[in-house]
Design a protein around this nucleic acid. Structure first.
Lengths: 200, 200
DNA sequence: CCGCTAATTCAACGTTTGTAGAATTAGGCC
DNA sequence: GGCCTAATTCTACAAACGTTGAATTAGCGG
């Protein structure tokens, strides 16, 4: 008999989310190493020990804060629902939209930052990409589809890095639509299998 | 009168290079934050204080170790010497060759890792890309050439990240020629689509 | 041999970090 | 009100870090 309802209610709703929000902001802005538990706790207006009470360790906090907010299965389905043509543009648009969303910006930035500096985070992202992302799109393509899908993905990751982390000009300030119009055909080339030129 | 020739000769040739080599290895493998001066000194078989005697600080050591080993002016000229057609394939090949070279692998990996986690390193790389790399190639292209050049560069950076840092399969194990054959046309799309300007 | 200079080492300081454990507070059920 | 439980805070530790300044060693010219 688990009298789970005894005592004070667990999982206070507000503070836990406040900690996660502060963690996403800190990890996204400073990366895993430079973000400190003390700073995150201060932003969330709680004691540092409370952070570890909830998440066990700094790694645990990171994993909880950086859990991917999207379902790749669904993501891929939406991109490819209307057929293979135009998929490049739709993919570029949908991917960049993730980074433009203020609520998600810190999260995705933190994931990328951590994947670069932290081996366990890299392993996690690697497994996610190999198992979920590439698998979701491989069914729609042919022979060397997995390689092609990863090449398209690598372009998107590099694009996000240059625009949102490095902030190199003129890429960082270019309007979204202009980028989508240029990147879309390049991605389409990987899907269609044909060498692709610029926009006609 | 500077009697510079008095006393013991400065700049002992061997140890300084040993420190730089160890630093490149450490920074490339672990990133700026996780690499420690003590570890670098131990690998170079010197005292940690000697490292700072030579380079002043950890940042100074990093700057010295990560100074870019290539001249982008010359790099771009070699890619575009034989004309615009085939430039995509040549660029993909030349860029990936940098990462395959064992002597340079740690260095370029460290530069990318640091640009992600360290703001000053990001600023340095950003200035380098905006001023040198993009400038070197912009003369060969027309109107929106800078944006197109950066998009092509972002693809290459993302490719290096996925293959050499994240090591996502099947990309990490794919033969170089196969990747070049697929990526080349994607890059070519950015070059050929632009209004042609010719070198100025 | 002596003195200058720089390479090189030794030992230590002060800070920051993640983390652990005890102590306290507060909410819900009997 | 009393008890149970979990949220929350307080205090502190132990390790690792970058950095410093003094001390020592070694090469070279006079």
């Amino acid at each position: 008999m688990q009298h789970k309802t005894l005592g004070r209610r667990p999982g206070s709703p507000a503070t836990r989310e406040a900690i996660l929000g502060a963690a996403r902001k800190a990890f996204g802005a400073a990366g895993f190493e430079r973000a400190t538990i003390r700073e995150i706790a201060q932003r969330a207006k709680v004691d540092p020990a409370l952070v570890l009470h909830y998440f066990g360790s700094k790694d645990g906090l990171f994993s909880a804060a950086m859990a991917l907010p999207i379902d790749p299965q669904q993501f891929a389905a939406r991109i490819l629902a209307d057929g293979i043509e135009g998929a490049g543009v739709r993919l570029a648009h949908a991917f960049l939209a993730l980074w433009e969303e203020p609520r998600l910006a810190g999260q995705v930035r933190g994931i990328l930052r951590a994947a670069v500096s932290h081996e366990s985070a890299a392993a996690s992202l690697r497994a996610f990409i190999e198992g979920q992302v590439v698998g979701s799109v491989a069914g729609y393509l042919g022979e060397d589809a997995r390689l092609r899908a990863e090449l398209a993905g690598s372009h998107l990751v590099g694009l996000a890095f240059a625009r949102y982390i490095l902030r190199a000009e003129p890429l960082a300030s270019a309007p979204l639509d202009e980028i989508v119009a240029l990147v879309g055909p390049a991605l389409q080339g990987y899907f269609s299998g044909a060498a692709q030129g610029g926009p006609q």
